[in-house]
């Protein structure tokens, strides 16, 4: 059940991979949309954590263009609903995530990314 909520927080953790290791790039994804409780307070609290450019780019790659290029300072209900949908309702079920720096591929199966590293990749 990887959602953009956690994808937006996730960088590559392979050994010595410290720069340009975010965001992980989705490939060959299968998506599923599942409704979630709308919680505007959670979203407002979460907004400062978001890397906005990464979120907008990734949402676009997944076919959702509803977010503005700049994170708005004033938030209205419509914006929050779009953000809610993008962060919490789009589930990446299958596919993979590739590190833009070292090229490590994290496969996703049944919605669960495999974050295990091979021995030579462990820091």
């Amino acid at each position: 059940m990887v959602r953009l909520l956690t994808h937006n927080l996730l960088a590559c953790h392979a050994k010595d991979c410290n720069t340009n290791n975010f965001p992980l790039q989705f490939k060959d994804v299968q998506l599923e949309i599942r409704e979630a409780d709308f919680n505007p307070e959670f979203l407002k609290g979460f907004m400062p954590k978001i890397d906005w450019k990464a979120l907008v780019d990734t949402a676009r790659q997944l076919g959702d263009t509803s977010l503005p290029l700049e994170q708005p300072e004033m938030v209205d209900d419509e914006f929050l609903k779009n953000l809610h949908h993008i962060l919490l309702e789009i589930h990446v079920e299958e596919g993979s995530m590739t590190c833009p720096n070292c090229g490590h591929v994290y496969p996703i199966s049944n919605g669960i990314p495999n974050m295990l590293l091979a021995e030579h990749e462990i820091g």
């Binding site: 990887v2 927080l9 996730l10 960088a11 669960i112 990314p113 974050m115 295990l116 590293l117 462990i122």
Partner: peptide
Amino acid sequence: DLFLQDIGQGFGFRPGS
């Protein structure tokens, strides 16, 4: 959201997540 991960290998979550 679930992840298959060995915590002994460390996390890649960004600061303040």
